[in-house]
Design a protein around this nucleic acid. Sequence first.
RNA 1: GGAGAGAUGGCCGAGUGGUCGAAGGCGCACGCCUGGAAAGUGUGUAUACCUCACAAGGGUAUCGAGGGUUCGAAUCCCUCUCUCUCCGCCA
Length: 423
Amino acid sequence: MLQINLIREQSDEVINKLKIKNFNATEIVSKLLAVDTERRSIQKKLDDTLADSNSIAREIGHLFKSGKQTEANALREKTSELKQQVKELQGQLNKLEDDQSNLLVLLPNVPHESVPAGQSSEENEIINQEGIIGELPDNALPHWELAGKYDIIGFELGTKITGAGFPVYKGKGAKLQRALISFFLDEAIKAGYTEYQPPLLVNEASAFATGQLPDKDGQMYHVPIDNLFLIPTSEVPVTNFYRDMILQEDELPIKNTAYSVCFRREAGSYGKDVRGLNRLHQFDKVEIVQVTHPEKSYDTLEEMLTYVSGLLKKLELPFRVARLCGGDLSFASAMTYDMEVYSSAQKRWLEVSSISNFETFQSNRMKLRFKNKEGKISLAHTLNGSALALPRILAALLENNQTSEGIRVPKVLIPYTGFEMIS
RNA sequence: GGAGAGAUGGCCGAGUGGUCGAAGGCGCACGCCUGGAAAGUGUGUAUACCUCACAAGGGUAUCGAGGGUUCGAAUCCCUCUCUCUCCGCCA
């Protein structure tokens, strides 16, 4: 959520920057400016009226104490009009405050100046590509066939017990998943992140704070009986640890990591995008989250990009990095790098990580602030990235490493799997 | 799920209708004291919004959340949330 001050002071810039996201903010901003002006004027009136009413109340108190009943009662009659005014003004103010926040919530985050314009993922800017795209034999199989051939993932079994998009991992497949999770967590800890195991369900306030509500309502599984949401990513609980907090400047940066299962309804997805492990309703992911000083967040974004690139190199997977164009950038993000690995049998790039700087968009919603040495309080910046999402990593590993003898496990994972081949 | 108790500032804890944003203590910051430190001592120490220059000063709100009674509520009433104790159930 953008801060009203920003809109008040730099409305034209906000409108212009949002054009990069293909978002026309003109109407919302002008409504906001009108509501804001009105709100402040009503607030002033209300405060003044309350001040009057407070001073009369104090006076009455004094009069009663000194036994001047008659005068006190006379004053008392004067208050009814003030009370009526307070009630009306309060009502108006509440309405205006609601209007304001309902409008503010409609505005996406403004993109960073380096974000290129563009309509869709087609126009993302590929800034780096690493690793060798190996040649596969002619009889190479896509991962969903490999999964069956080696009996390591049961797609139909998952469909039977739950539904499409809920695979069952079996034997060496399950062990490989566990290996990846441990590997990712160990690497994150080595890089200075603190490991957490968060709840997989969150309340409404948490879902709002990180931007899932109201923007992506319908993407989350909802448990109405307790009004809880299954997390689409551990970013939600882990960032919300700091909701309504004022940190000390020297507590920054906060570097957290968490493994969690993630749940996404993915309504409207179909076709080759959802084949095999490409897009699931339930998947595993290790996430990294940072809370930083506003001046350091873009350095942090680069640091996180370097970190995730390192993971992919260790896994020996060819990958490329895209800086998302305005049209592909998420509602809450100011800048995002997508990391994609090459899945050789499908011959397509699969997104395995999305690393974003939200600047103050989330922290403003969740009132995550820090106090500097001088005692000044400001909003912190929040960032997060997948490090990494498992299913597509698994897909690429299976496809890229297939040999006539079986599927080769990358060297770094062998200490975790205890086997070198899936055969 | 049933019964009871409770929720006050960074923490502990007083306050049951009248200048209470809230005593006292701890913690923290700065100063004095000291050769240095401890002890002692003095001062300060919430947040948001409005006014305003994101200064000073001023105003308003906030004692779990929301609503109500009252001229006036941390204090009374209602609803909700959460915590604790006991019982039940249970990985």
